[in-house]
Amino acid sequence: MAPQDLNKGSDVEPPAVRLAGPPRPAPTANPPKKGAGPAASIIFDLEKLEVFYGAFRAVREVTMQIFKNEITAFIGPSGCGKTTVLRCFNRMHDVTPGARVAGGLRYHTADLYGPRVSATEVRRRIGMVFQKPNPFPKSIYENVAFGLRSKGIRSKDDLDGIVEKSLRSAALWEEVKDRLRASALGLSGGQQQRLCIARTIAVGPEVVLMDEPCSALDPVATARIEELMRDLKSNFTIVIVTHNMQQAARVSDRTAFFTTEVDATFGRRTGTLVEYDETNRIFSNPHDERTENYITGRFG
């Protein structure tokens, strides 16, 4: 699949994915291989991606590729830019005043920051689960149905079906099926986070971004979310930011290690990608000394 720049020839429809129109099935030209492999199709292609907050460069030149139906983990110390990079993927920086993204970021072959790309359309394909469970102060049912209603789905039968399917996928259905009309805020923290996952997958995204989804949860709830992530992998591509190295080792196929370094131009600490490889190699035989120091607990 040849990458295509939407910035040029803006009259030409990009062949693979149209971000401004109604959803279309994702391309299946390269059937994904289970696990990591050279033939696995590329979901995100980052080339020298940089993020600025005002004049401050928060992340420097990240070049990497994220593959379909894999779990990719971002690890690294605080302030290393892993969440910042994650929020580029569904254009969450659009709502942060002063934030600016530079460099190349393609989703399949479409330029995510192209001029005609609608952030709303991007976010229907690339969902996000946040650090703190953040259900709406509405009923459990309405939480899951929210994105569907935004999409324009009105039929009650359709909504009921997708809500049930999403809650089942998020391993929450059995716990809440008798109280769908009850407030989502009455659920436990772990249940709320699974509800947020159900809400995210209800709109049928291709990618689920997770920003430290377990950092507010106890070990039992964390184990359930991790199990869920492994189940979801067959249908979704998952990118997870985590502070917990064991978690990255347990669930992810590939791991990217970020760290901070002093930016010569600005004299402030900037995040940078140190090493990106298959998870077992990152944890058993890292190439970079900084990665080794971090995973062995010598710093960070």
Binding site: V95, R123, R124, F130, N134, S150, V203
Partner: peptide
């Protein structure tokens, strides 16, 4: 709270 707005944006809501 802003996290409610973000949650809404994150499921593709205008």
């Amino acid at each position: 709270p802003d996290h409610l707005r973000e949650a809404s944006y994150a499921v593709g809501t205008s």
